[in-house]
């Protein structure tokens, strides 16, 4: 009898504890997500914004329009260029930084760890503005430094060839510190005996890295690489602040295109279709990630 009342009391308390979170997430996340699918099947535009009666269901025609929309393909290509370029590079830089910080000879480890991590906590919009100036053709620090090596000034953000690499470089700078921490944690979890055994066998530092570190870290390397790219597919603020998607649309990403279509031109039905393409890309990537996820140790 008593046990039963306690059980009921616990169940009631549980739903009360959950209520605020479930209500908020249901109303402001799941419901709009479902509505986005409906929206993408309508011709919702600026007239519908004034009076919803002006919106009509148009079936898949927004998706059909996407296929004929050259800018959509450009944005898709740019997004993949950014994610596939930036992802592996971030992982590589993060790994090298982690190995350096974690090396047995390193002193002031905490200082370097903090220094490398600082870009990650800064405000993206603010540092994107800083980098705009560092990339400036005439007075930017980057061209000045390259000039010392006899390299002609490059108009980093004004040249369609260089704008995306410039944004990639900035994003690597901004994000590598976070993944460095993950790798440091991974490195510290490798049993010391493995290194001691390798050293006894006379293995050089390079061979120890190749035959102990890499195989031990391997699974988390691939995993992090995939996770990193999910974030990079959502590229938005960097081109918004640094290039407005230009020059010649060379840095227009899917999310930037969605923002412009949806919130500048109020073609919200069309923009919702773009959002769903993003969703499908991320869904596929997440499924790949779950495949690769290292078994919980």
């Amino acid at each position: 009898m008593r046990a039963e009342t306690i059980e009921r009391q616990v169940a009631r308390a549980a739903w009360l504890f959950l209520a605020p979170a479930l209500l908020l997430i249901g109303l402001f996340f799941f419901l709009p997500a479902a509505a986005a699918l409906v929206l993408s099947l309508t011709d919702f535009d600026i007239y519908a914004l004034a009076d919803i009666g002006n919106a009509r269901v148009v079936g898949a025609s927004n998706y059909a329009r996407l296929i004929d929309h050259p800018l959509f393909w450009t944005a898709l290509k740019n997004t993949f260029y950014f994610a596939l370029g930036c992802g592996p590079l971030t992982v590589l830089v993060a790994l090298v930084a982690a190995l350096l910080v974690n090396a047995p000879l390193t002193r002031s480890r905490t200082f370097f760890r903090t220094a490398y991590f600082v870009p990650f906590v800064t405000t993206l919009v603010a540092v994107a503005i800083v980098w705009r100036y560092l990339y400036h053709k005439n007075y930017g620090l980057l061209n000045y430094t390259l000039g010392a090596f006899g390299i002609e000034p490059v108009d980093w953000l004004g040249d369609p060839t260089w704008a995306m690499p410039a944004i990639i470089l900035m994003a690597v700078w901004k994000n590598f510190g976070y993944y460095m921490l993950i790798f440091i944690a991974g490195l510290q979890a490798i049993p010391r005996e493995l290194y001691e055994a390798a050293e006894l066998d006379g293995a050089s530092a390079w061979r120890r890295f190749l035959h102990v570190t890499l195989p031990q870290l391997g699974p988390s390397l691939v995993f992090v690489g995939v996770v990193v790219m999910i974030g990079y597919f959502q590229l938005f603020a960097e081109p918004y602040v640094m290039t407005q998607g230009g020059p010649l649309k060379s840095t227009t990403s899917l999310v930037l295109l969605m923002y412009e279509e949806g919130f500048r031109w109020w073609r919200m039905g069309f923009a919702a279709a773009i959002a769903f393409v993003l969703f499908v890309i991320i869904l596929i990537w997440t499924l790949i990630q779950r495949r690769l996820e290292p078994k919980a140790a």
Binding site: F29, A35, A36, G262, A272, F279
Partner: peptide, 20 residues
Amino acid sequence: VLTAGLMLPVQVVMLPLFLF
């Protein structure tokens, strides 16, 4: 159901949420 939502990019939600 909740954790399945982790796969949804937040940008998908923004258009309807704005109207809402």
